[in-house]
Design a binder for these strands. Sequence first.
DNA 1: CGTTAGCCCTGCTGGC
DNA 2: TGCCAGCAGGGCTAAC
Length: 274
Amino acid sequence: MPELPEVETIRVQLAPAVTGRTIERVRILDPLLVAPERPEPLVRKLKQRKITGLERRGKYLLFRLAGGDTLVIHLRMTGTLTLLDHEPSGEDKRYLRLVIFLDNGSFLILRDPRRFGKTMLLEGDAATTYWDKLGPEPLSSAFNQAALGRALAGRSRAIKPTLLDQQLIAGIGNIYADEALFEAGIRPQKRSGDLSDKEIERLASSIRQTLKRAIKLQGSSIDSYRDSRGNPGRFQETFRVHRREGEPCPGCRGRVKKIKLGGRGTYFCPRCQK
DNA sequence: CGTTAGCCCTGCTGGC
DNA sequence: TGCCAGCAGGGCTAAC
């Protein structure tokens, strides 16, 4: 499931390949991908548009287009974005939702078995307004202990669902919330507003460290995630608690526990996380 | 306002 | 062995 490290990996790989290229045409094979917008106007608007840059905001991938518009792709749960040097064929066509034909003869394809992924065109300053709703980038200077403290202050809900709230911090998903809370030694059920200054400091730091380590290992592949070359990430090999129910905790050798929190599977060590 | 529950989707897993 | 209920979850909306 692409979270910040996975989307960043794709961005780094694709940026040199698409920047300066022109979109010759676009094919939308699943109307749900662009709903509630209809495919036809989008296809028309993207024809012969030049890509001036590729950016990321939270888990969103942003194709900047000449003229100021932005093509936005969110892969949600099972979406993959792959760059091909040939027409999609065979396995490429399975779950195929979108094909972007580039002017150098390469193809950018979006496949998505679960069909949760979304694509949209934000025109003009609609883009700016859209991103205003998202919280700070955890790897930017805007995110530090003070910013995290402000986001948590006075909140009664558990810290884990708070970390998943994109309006407070952008880009953290279920995997990295579990891993960062373990690194910080904080129990996922703890009320957000009850964290001490020391804990907030540890959490801010562990969020940054966890995301950075994950980017270095090119993200996590549990089942469907692949980078733009079709390769899996390797961060899942270093999971401390996520998806490791019943296995020994790397800290105390006790058993990793799984609970449901905010509707999400949540893994933690009851002894190491207070 | 803050918080929570349910919904969208469909491939895969686990239990019988 | 085969079947099928239930699980997975990011982001949105409705409800409290």
